[in-house]
Amino acid sequence: MIAVKNLSKHFGQVKAVDDISFDIADGETLILLGTSGCGKTTTLKMINRLIEPTKGDISVNGKSIHEQSPEALRRGIGYVLQNNGLFPHYTVAENMAIVPQLLKWDKQKIEQRTDELIQKLHLVEEQLSVYPDQLSGGQQQRVGLARALMADPPVLLMDEPFGALDPVTRFKIRREFKQLDELKRKTIIMVTHDVQEAFEMGDRICLMDKGRIIQTGTPAELLFKPANNFVIEFLKEQRLQLEFKAVTLMDLWDTLPENLSQAESIDSSQTVWEALELLTANSKQPLSATNPANGQSKTITFESLMTAFYQYQSTET
């Protein structure tokens, strides 16, 4: 869906982005991760031409972004900002209607799409007539996402979307967004400096430093097949928790015990971290997972899960 080829952006003598290339598959979520000043936000802004590159090319769905005007390009790409970017003098409904009005949707179509999204994003109809500063931070972020999704764009760019929220709200909103069906059929590039967030939200992670890509891969690849010492050091402090979030039940499948009893069902694609959360919440009562490929079921207890995880860990590290 998106191809970035030999992309660079120089500000005078400073190479903010220095000859990077990556591809993103249709429906994939790629996280641009790194420290402040590594070039991740500059890269994001070049994709929708808020910043023009010094050299290189970007294509979306096989078409170079320079083959259309910046305005036309942006109408087909959703954009979510850290501070939500809502117009303070517009009501929630007016903020959400901006792109559909530019696309000349009729009033009924705009209202139908608005109603659909406020239900999915846990907003209420009464909030449509209020102004952004009358909402909580979490509600404002939901409205910002709703505005980006209104025209149902195939591509969504998210620049530190949860960065302005307090830790409790941030965790809750992040979990809600991950489960949102609207996002599961989008191609998403998300910028963050939060390692835990990257591992929770991303199918793949592009780790950057000083304008260059250090390694691109799945969360598990960055942990168990690091490209160099920079990757190892960047993830070292949170490594165990990140491993829990990177390893799925299917990764452990062969070392989990056969299903011997009735138990609460859990998706086999869930991570070890998600399974541990469920086990802890249910006083460590067993869970049951089914392999979609062959219908085989496995019992998951706290003890069997940890045994399988440490066995997997020892073979991968």
Rank of each mutant, 00 (worst) to 15 (best):
R142Y: 13
L103G: 05
A146S: 06
V155L: 05
Q179N: 11
N48P: 02
L279P: 01
H89A: 08
Q215Y: 11
V272D: 02
G85T: 11
T218K: 06
V17F: 13
H10T: 05
R174Q: 15
F309A: 00
C206A: 13
Q140K: 15
V231C: 11
D254Y: 03
S136Q: 08
G138W: 12
S129N: 14
L180F: 05
G12N: 06
L240A: 10
F244I: 02
L157Y: 11
D267H: 10
R212M: 13
E197G: 07
I173H: 01
L242Q: 01
R174W: 04
F309R: 00
R212L: 08
P53C: 04
K45A: 06
R185V: 14
D57Q: 14
V231H: 12
H122S: 14
S69W: 06
A281N: 06
V14Q: 13
K210R: 14
L260K: 14
F199G: 04
Y79V: 12
F309Y: 00
A246R: 01
Q119L: 14
A263K: 01
Q285L: 12
F230C: 07
A151Q: 07
T54P: 00
A227Y: 09
K9S: 04
I98R: 03
Q285P: 01
A25I: 01
T299S: 15
A97M: 12
L102Q: 15
V272R: 01
T280W: 08
P132A: 13
D106N: 15
T315Q: 11
L156Y: 09
S268L: 08
Q270R: 11
D251L: 01
V143H: 01
Q141E: 07
Q68D: 03
K120Y: 08
R74M: 06
I47F: 00
L222G: 09
N282K: 14
I213S: 04
R74K: 04
